[in-house]
Amino acid sequence: MISQDDLAALLERLCPMFVLLDQSGHVQQVGPTLQKLRPDQPMAGQRFLELFELMRPRSISTMPGLLAVSGAKLHLQFRDEPHTALKGIIVPLPDDAGAVVNLSFGISILDAVRDYALTSADFSGTDLAIELLYLVEAKSAAMEASRTLNLRLQGAMIAAEEQAYTDTLTGLKNRRAMDHILERLTTSSASFALMHLDLDFFKAVNDTLGHAAGDHVLQQVARVMVEETRGDDTVARVGGDEFVLIFNGLQDKVRLDSIASRLITRLEEPIPFQSDVCRISASIGTVQSSQFNTPEPAEVLHAADLALYSAKRSGRACHHFYDRSMSDLMGTSALSKGETQDHT
């Protein structure tokens, strides 16, 4: 039979976190790594269950109780701070000579190497602790690299989306953005009003003063429309000289009419361009979401189109609200099919 000292010497090399217990459950010897966790507190001589609290299986408080769960996985923690969690297994020695407990860190390994400044020399050569630490760091490094890549890609995506939804000449939203917003408003059954605005005499500016003048006029028009609307309203350029304005939560006809009149008045102000002065006006058709039971984007745009058409027919610079009698005066609307349409 191997002597206790020889056994301890053997265990020290194979499992540096062993505990050798006598019959009464007192610690006789401990492995160097385990003792390193409590450098100022020699473990030998203390009662094992006073050093460690058995978390699972619970309510074991005696040595015979411990021996009865021999072979099962034990979950323990230190009774004093830091309560590092440990896993263990207890095996009785022959002839009722006590028992050997082998402990390891399990998942608490990350905190343990930091809390106790452990080095690779503290682990047995067959212990996978170092590989586990390696893996954790390798994965963190790879994740970090992926995360920064994702952030950059997300930034690029936001910029690309912004660009895809913006009319580059005026900085207003474009047709695609307007379609998205209208889709969102109709599916969420939000209340809103939609204006379809078409510039009058714009073609004349383009024809007589050239495209540079036309572009300048469009930019000024865009500025006016942004100034005359609220921050959460939508102003989109949906065609050459066609615009759609969407007013969130606004249904009041008096207010809508005054906004439309003000827009027309301001758009009629002469726009200087180099040595020339450009004069345009606008016609507007307005529709309210409350005019439909369940508004569909195509339906709403078609209605706004009809109102605009009606406004154009009564001369320039007019604003008309949509009403049901207008239906199909003009057949299928080009705007509701997603094409631009020249009313001028």
Partner: peptide, 10 residues
Amino acid sequence: GRSFDLGATA
């Protein structure tokens, strides 16, 4: 040489 502390993370 430079130190290497297992518990430190990069």
